[in-house]
Nucleic acid binder design. Structure first.
Length: 284
DNA sequence: GTACTTGTTGAACG
DNA sequence: TCGTTCAACAAGTA
């Protein structure tokens, strides 16, 4: 499941291979994953590759191609020159070792320098052609600031928490209107980092805790971004392996395992419909 | 057959 | 109208 740091890693990888390249053709095998008129894309050149929350926005000469990988989407680029050199990854799983295109390949975009394969095990993701900046804005309208934007300040986070005093802190963080792109993994990690229990009410956080949390959000994302880079490497060298994607996680997915800080067994609870993993000793 | 996975959306509540 | 909570949905795995 590509989270924000992984999407950013994919963005960088994509940028390095398709920037200034031209779309030759596009094949959509599963119609519902593709919105808009695909014919518009043919012949257009890639002007830029950007990211907003977990959305990838590929700007072309006359329109935009927006991609959301959701849980299990992958974008894999195979250059014409070196067909075995896969340069862009996504969620690692067994499908990775299959020859492309395979049963989970739903969209294929041919560029003049190679092929971009969109694979999605569960078909939750999508691609959309936006004919104008306005169309793109519509998709991103409700998103809060990026973790590294100048809009995301200590004061901003404090105000958001004040505004929703009765909501649980994890839920406020999961809300894309608070900070764009935080998912279940990074809300757990950020809360562990800030030593705050996930089911605390937003209004119950003391000022120093909010400050800590504010610092922790970019911290865990940046750390993951470093690992996202190394995960990408693993993709190339390990056939079908799971890579080191989650090896850095301190709490996520480690229920009943010892806390890496204090050794206590990590516990889970439900916050909304989500599983939250936390350390009962480190987090208060 | 059931429970579980995530991000997003929409319904239902006070 | 608003904030909040909950359920549903996508498709597959264990």
């Amino acid at each position: 499941m590509p989270e924000l740091p992984e999407v950013e890693t994919i963005r960088r990888g994509l940028e390095s291979v398709i920037l200034e390249k031209i779309i030759v053709s596009i094949e959509v095998k599963v119609l519902k994953l593709f919105r808009g008129n695909k014919a518009l894309l043919v012949g257009q050149k890639v002007v830029s590759v950007s990211r907003r929350a977990k959305l990838l926005i590929i700007k072309l000469t006359n329109c935009y191609l927006v991609v959301h990988l959701k849980m299990t989407g992958q974008l894999i680029f195979v250059p014409k020159s070196k067909p075995k050199d896969i340069t862009v990854g996504g969620h690692p799983d067994r499908a990775y070792s299959l020859k492309l295109p395979h049963e989970y390949t739903h969209i294929i975009i041919q560029f003049n320098n190679g092929a971009l394969y969109y694979n999605d095990l569960r078909k939750f993701g999508w691609m959309a052609v936006c004919e104008s900046q306005k169309d793109v804005d519509r998709l991103t309208a409700d998103l809060g600031p990026e973790y590294n934007s100048t809009d995301f300040t200590h004061g901003y986070l404090t105000a958001k928490l004040t505004k929703r005093p009765k909501a649980k802190i994890k839920q406020v963080l999961l809300d894309q209107k608070t900070v764009a792109g935080l998912g279940n993994i990074y809300t757990d990690e950020a809360l562990f980092c800030a030593k705050v229990l996930p089911n605390r009410l937003a209004s119950s956080l003391k000022k120093p805790e909010v400050k800590k949390l504010y610092g922790c959000i970019p911290k865990v994302l940046k750390e993951a971004l470093k690992h996202g880079g190394s995960t990408l490497k693993d993709y190339r060298h390990v056939d079908g392996g799971y890579g080191s994607y989650l090896s850095f996680a301190k709490v996520y997915g480690r229920a009943k395992q010892p806390c890496k800080v204090c050794g206590s067994l990590l516990e889970t609870t439900k916050v909304g419909a989500r599983t939250a993993t936390y350390c009962p000793k480190c987090q208060r």
